[in-house]
């Protein structure tokens, strides 16, 4: 029975959708990263989520927190670079909020993603407008929270979050990078969309698509 919440089946479906969307955009992410980074983002994300999907498919789960935790551990040990610890931390912190929960509604998922975002900020020390994944995740999490306050469904909330993440991602184009390898370019980093903000958008899109069924 579909109550519109994120349960174990849908959480695993989300991991599958992330893997698929990252694979489909592997070259695109790598191209974005070639322009201002070191040309490995698409490759690393694809490797990480391929392994994460293998992991969650091979296990039995009673709660969504454990799904998120296995994703986190797999990303940390397979992605490498900065993306590994950062996305690993995002899923790890979120998993703590989701521990022992059979399903998440919009309010709970908003809280989990907020925890995840705070973990990313604490580890990467990036602020808004530094041209990083934080620029896509922050407006998305804010949109989830405000949608939860307005009593919207999870799918409606994710739809709004996705729109804000997309805007946040595109807003990184004119920014001058202040974190990560792109920061070495200084002014020359302006004019390129941030690969990390782009992968964050894709991950949110996968969550939205997973709920769509």
């Amino acid at each position: 029975m579909d109550n519109g919440k994120l349960d174990v089946t849908k959480a695993i479906e989300a991991v599958k959708r992330i893997k698929d969307i990252v694979d489909a955009n592997k070259e695109y992410l790598t191209e974005l990263d070639s322009a201002i980074g070191d040309a490995d983002h698409g490759i690393n994300m694809s490797r990480g989520f391929t392994k994460a999907l293998e992991k969650v498919k091979s296990n039995e789960y009673n709660d969504i927190g454990s799904v998120f935790k296995d994703v986190a551990m797999t990303l940390m040990s397979t992605v490498g670079g900065a993306a590994g610890p950062l996305y690993g931390t995002f899923f790890m912190k979120a998993s703590m909020k989701l521990a022992a929960q059979k399903e998440a509604d919009l309010s709970l998922l908003a809280q989990a993603f907020r925890e995840g975002l705070q973990g990313v900020v604490a580890l990467g020390k990036a602020q808004l407008s530094d041209k990083t994944m934080v620029d896509a995740l922050t407006p998305a999490v804010e949109a989830l929270e405000s949608a939860a306050k307005d009593g919207l469904t999870l799918k409606q909330g994710l739809e709004k979050a996705l729109a804000m993440a997309e805007k946040g991602m595109k807003d990184t184009i004119p920014m001058v990078a202040r974190k990560g390898r792109a920061s070495y370019l200084g002014e020359r980093s302006a004019g390129h969309q941030d690969p990390g903000a782009t992968s964050s958008y894709l991950i949110l899109k996968a969550f939205y698509d997973a709920l769509e069924g």
């Binding site: 070191d38 040309a39 490995d40 490759i43 690393n44 490797r47 940390m76 040990s77 397979t78 992605v79 490498g80 670079g81 900065a82 590994g84 610890p85």
Partner: peptide
Amino acid sequence: PGEIFTSPTPD
């Protein structure tokens, strides 16, 4: 060693 030009992982 990590992958080419990619940091190794904590483990």
